[in-house]
Design a protein around this nucleic acid. Sequence first.
DNA 1: TGGAAAGTAGAACAGTTGGTCTACTTCTGA
DNA 2: TCAGAAGTAGACCAACTGTTCTACTTTCCA
Lengths: 185, 185
Amino acid sequence: MTPRTSPGPRERLLAAGQQLFYSQGASVGVDALLKEANVARRSLYEHFGDKDGLIAAVLRRAAEEDLAWYEDALAGATEPRARLLGLFDRLDELVATPDFRGCRYFATDLSFANPGHPAHAETDAFRRSLRALLVRELKALGHARPERAAEQLHLLIEGTLVVGATQDGHHPGRAARDLAAVVLG
Amino acid sequence: MTPRTSPGPRERLLAAGQQLFYSQGASVGVDALLKEANVARRSLYEHFGDKDGLIAAVLRRAAEEDLAWYEDALAGATEPRARLLGLFDRLDELVATPDFRGCRYFATDLSFANPGHPAHAETDAFRRSLRALLVRELKALGHARPERAAEQLHLLIEGTLVVGATQDGHHPGRAARDLAAVVLG
DNA sequence: TGGAAAGTAGAACAGTTGGTCTACTTCTGA
DNA sequence: TCAGAAGTAGACCAACTGTTCTACTTTCCA
């Protein structure tokens, strides 16, 4: 609440988690998290209860940031159609980033076979928000079947992320953009 | 080589690995694998060297079976265009399977952050084979730009698997099929 | 200025991990 | 038939896991 001169242990843990969970997966050890965050062991358990609590908190924060990223990508243009097509240009850039490793949320889902794990609730929430965002844009565009088109755009996004994460030198964003243009009509 | 009345420990380990690595992820313990396969600890290490060796062997076998599945899905029709479209119908059925958990190869890639892990070579090989299969079909169809179209079909396939694994009650295969029809021209 | 709250440092714990080793049994083929 | 290969069963090990705990230090505010 009160502004700080330097980020406290809670902030540092979230930042470290965001970085390490993405680059190494949810199986990174607590020791590595603590070292990266420069935080005492005890602080983690007082702020987040346990490791799963940190995982959920990191996902919640990442979801906020990622949704903001999508909004920003859409904001590159004003005309509804150009907004959505521009998103795929930004995706194409994103997956070309050297340390891009794919969709954080799908990776998390795969990490936890137990469907009751709290992480799944967070990834679900993110995907719902993303869908809602796509539907909103499609309605602004006056699309005849926004829900169905959102499904197709979502499919194109996920496909772009997977292909981008597994193959170098490709431009899945461009390929997806062309198909997105068809979806938009 | 010699025919057996009942499958030996090597076979049983591969079968157990194929099932457990898929349903639980690559992090399943050796103990669980041994119990599922009804095999002595020692047999695993004599046949496969270590756990990573088993993982690689399981992936190689799974890749064979999965490619055969794709061939079978294509074989539902004779006309080139219908063959590829039929593939997406089969994918739609596949992802509706109750215990479908997404693409085994992408899940494996995400499990091993270390790019030198032998599993990555296997997943790469699978994806190359899948691409080659798509290019072959597109050439049979007389497509003007088979490589590019294969990229788009591949993207649609991966997207279908991700959306199918994360959302219930949807039919991503149908959505992808419509877009595939556009790709085929 | 003093005292509670929050943070650090690190020992310790129980459970699990992948892997090795020994002893015994079963299968198999010259 | 019998020797050697292959398989089983399970103890054992070191390393690592998430977590709890104690002791000390810093920060902050009334």
